[in-house]
Design a protein around this nucleic acid. Structure first.
Lengths: 104, 104
DNA sequence: TAACAGGTACGAAAACTATCATACCTGACA
DNA sequence: TGTCAGGTATGATAGTTTTCGTACCTGTTA
């Protein structure tokens, strides 16, 4: 079962879901940006330059969260996002490097 | 432009397409099996135990081919499939290891 | 308090995907 | 030659995904 906060645990993360989440260019852009943040770096949902409405943005962040890629935390009236870096490196070693190697 | 045979060249391979291709469990099963073959190993389309009709099977192999994951070669009245291992390792180092680490 | 900005929830439309049935083509082989 | 097995092409259907508009909630700030 998921975390008490609704996040998948490491063991619940599925490669299929991760790949599906990362197949979308907007979501890949978000994860790419988060992966370049310094350790523990966070960014608000609105700080990513996604060319979609905020309803759609909410949708994409949900997909990322449910796949296990990010953690979200409410702060003020915004929501901060952090890559689940340690856990991802443990569960899917090489995944983030793969993403970071992508040249835009 | 693609290869003269319709395959994407290394530079044309796109991470998004690769991820989309590998998001499907049937296709992941095929690539997983091919990745465990010895170097240069080939297998016919029908040798994978996919619980779908042959029309659907054709569809999945097309997706894998167009993403750049496999090469196909006609032999007799069948079609053999080979992982584009070298090229994938060059273009997306770590990808195949990621797949092979998946525990079923 | 009122206005605003960041997010979510819900419902709908459009696009895409997986699947199948059917018809067809092509080698192998009896 | 005829039959069969492996594949492809096409068209249909069901399900999923992306997207948006709208309504709404909640902190912040003037």
């Amino acid at each position: 079962m998921p975390d008490r906060d609704g996040y998948p645990t490491i063991d619940e993360m599925e490669l299929g879901e991760i790949f599906a989440a990362l197949a979308d260019p907007h979501r890949r852009q978000v994860v790419f940006a988060l992966a370049r943040e310094p350790q523990g770096g966070e960014r608000s949902c609105s700080s990513f330059d996604l060319p979609v409405t905020k309803a759609t943005r909410t949708h994409h962040f949900r997909v990322l969260r449910e796949a296990g890629l990010i953690r979200q935390r409410d702060i003020g009236n915004g929501r901060m996002n952090k890559l689940r870096r340690e856990e991802l490196n443990r569960r899917f070693p090489g995944l983030l490097e793969l993403l970071l190697a992508e040249k835009d």
